[in-house]
Design a protein around this nucleic acid. Structure first.
Length: 547
RNA sequence: GCGGGCGUAGCUCAAUGGCAGAGCUCCAGCCUUCCAAGCUGGCUACGAGGGUUCGAUUCCCUUCGCCCGCUCCA
């Protein structure tokens, strides 16, 4: 099974090269590991995937706007986001077993081991947790690509290529809020390149060093604000209708689940059926410290089940970090909230503060306990600090001010493309009327993402009428969708060529077309043919392309 | 970075210390051509460098690259 899967990825990557979907970057110079180029068909596929995402996430909604930020940004952004610290892991390697690991995790790995190896060098404190061997000096390995901005190559001019697009959205949050006529809850979406200096790029295009992301930061009110305004917060226990319009009294849990469902709808719409991916809810001890929940949508790639996209509930962590580091308030003003709070008595407010203080303390202790794997109780000082934070937060809320929380659906364009290619790829065993066996290689792309929508052929290229009429159809369709023209070889060969490109329809102009204008439309998946007029074909095509 | 495997045409594979071949693909043309299978012609390769040798794709050395493995989460 693993062998079969491996060979199917080999066959797929061979097809991708042969037909011009994916090439190795800089191939004539030997290639660059972890970098891939998209050829003529690949770049069309990519455009279509991105366009579908943008339509579904931004243009098709009234509560999401777009952003297109630079790849190089102020380096302090990465300090605030934590990437400068957490992405700069000191790495060490065992001189004996050659295992590579993070130096700061050596003790944890050792603690997790059932068989605890003894250090091979007597008395050594820093040794390989797997075999006891000697470890190399830890060397910092920063996953961010460094560059220099300006004419002087000096440490003060160091900048980084962004490791994710999300931070630009946070960094421009106040500008977008001020200029877009949007109010929380609303989202900012961005597509673009990101860069990570991966230790080991592998699995074809799956883990690349330069890749493209499609990210949405959907900003929501904190649950406490909803509680104050509506007297309740809708949670999943209330079984809200996630397919209908969004509701003002949804809490973060509902928004998070809502976006999980939206992402699944999108994947369905571009050709990944629900049964082909799995939804993995991260367990409390797997969550990043700031995350309240995170769902991975995973796909069974030939090399194993791997993450396609993630939908994280990140609380107010990111905006708060930028507020601290930039000293620019990231709060929004929510007038309905302020008006609602005006009606509260001092006793009601005090009770709300007390309740919030208790909730925060419970939640933080629970989160840390889950991480540590044992019951953690805060000291009196720690508890007092949490209480003070909660009180300040509540007082801001009473003034209608808060830092929005965020739900982050984050997808990889290249990963989705790879999944769509794997999903679409099929080698069909056929038998013709004469009983001869034949293999047809076909990419069953959804028409929305298919790089070429229609191919047009004159049945007999020497026939001037057929050639002329076919060219007229080609010219007309070219103004609407991506088309191909092919007169080379026998008609069956032309069909098979289009099958490998994943073209959903082929139009063949024959002698009858010259008489009555109808032509043969051949369907990629069923290989069936039917005669229709140009108008009938257009209607059929548009129906399949519509979202 | 370390270990293992592999480098001959776009792909799959030959052969050889003395002119590097085939099949498929691709391109041009022929054939009144609706599912790759006819005919003619064409393009394209010994990863790179050095050594031994009259002569190296072949033998030796070095180097480069690719694939797989080392808890990187788009």
């Amino acid at each position: 099974m693993a062998e079969e899967n491996k060979s199917s990825l080999d066959a797929l990557s061979a097809l991708c090269k042969r037909r011009g979907f994916i090439y190795h970057s800089s191939e004539i110079y030997g290639g660059m590991p972890g970098f891939w180029d998209y050829g003529p068909l690949g770049c069309e596929l990519k455009q279509n995937v991105k366009q579908a995402w943008w339509q579904f996430t931004v243009r098709g909604r009234e509560d999401v706007v777009g952003l297109d930020a630079t790849i190089i940004m102020h380096p302090r952004i990465w300090k605030a986001s934590g990437h400068l610290d957490t992405f700069a892991d000191p790495m060490t390697m065992c001189k004996d077993c050659k295992k590579l690991m993070r130096a700061d995790q050596v003790k944890d790995i050792y603690a997790d081991q059932k068989k605890k190896p003894q250090p091979k060098v007597a008395g050594a404190e820093f040794f390989c947790p797997y075999c006891g061997g000697e470890l190399t000096e830890p060397k910092p390995f920063n996953l961010m690509f460094k560059t220099v901005v300006g004419p002087i190559d000096d440490p003060s001019n160091v900048a980084y290529l962004r490791p994710e697009t999300a931070q630009a959205i946070f960094a421009q949050f106040t500008n977008v809020t001020a200029t877009s006529r949007m109010a929380v809850p609303y989202g900012i979406a961005q597509m673009g390149k990101s860069f990570r200096n991966e230790v080991t790029p592998r699995n074809y295009t799956f883990r690349s060093r330069e890749f493209e992301q499609m990210e949405l930061e959907f900003f929501i009110r904190p649950d406490e604000a909803i509680e104050l305004q509506y007297g309740h917060v809708v949670t999943l226990a209330d079984k809200p209708d996630l397919n209908g319009p969004v509701q003002d009294d949804w809490g973060w849990e509902v928004w998070h689940k809502y976006w999980v469902e939206q992402r699944k709808k999108f994947l369905n719409a571009v050709g990944l059926p629900t049964e082909r991916f799995v939804e993995y809810w991260q367990k409390p001890d797997e969550l990043a410290h700031y995350a309240r929940a995170c769902v991975d949508i995973e796909y069974d790639f030939p090399f194993g089940r791997q993450e396609l996209e993630g939908i994280a509930a990140r609380s107010d962590f990111d905006l708060t970090q930028h507020q601290i580091h930039s000293k620019v308030p990231q709060t929004v003003f929510d007038d309905p909230l302020k008006q609602a709070c005006k009606k509260l008595t001092d006793e009601q407010k005090a009770a709300f503060v007390a309740k919030t203080q208790k909730d925060w303390l419970d939640r933080k202790q629970k989160a840390q306990s889950a991480k540590a794997g044992k019951e953690i109780v805060f000291s009196a000082d720690e508890a007092a600090a949490v209480a003070a934070q909660a009180k300040a937060f509540c007082e801001n809320l009473f003034d209608g001010k808060y830092v929005p929380h965020v739900i982050e659906p984050s997808a990889g364009v290249d990963r989705l493309m790879l999944a769509l290619l794997c999903e679409a790829y099929e080698e069909q065993a056929l038998t013709d009327e004469k009983g001869k066996a034949d293999v047809r290689t076909v990419l069953h792309f959804h028409p929305k993402v298919a790089p070429v929508k229609v191919a047009i052929f004159p049945l007999i290229k020497k026939d001037p009428d057929q050639d002329r009429i076919a060219r007229e159809i080609f010219a007309k369709l070219q103004k609407k969708v991506n088309c191909q023209w092919d007169v080379s070889g026998a008609i069956g060969r032309r069909y098979r060529r289009q099958d490998e490109a994943g073209t959903p329809w082929c139009i063949t102009v024959d002698a009858q077309t010259v008489q009555d204008g109808t032509f043969t439309v051949r369907e990629r998946d069923s290989m069936t043919q039917s005669r229709m007029t140009y108008g009938e074909f257009l209607a059929k095509m548009y129906e399949a392309l519509e979202f």
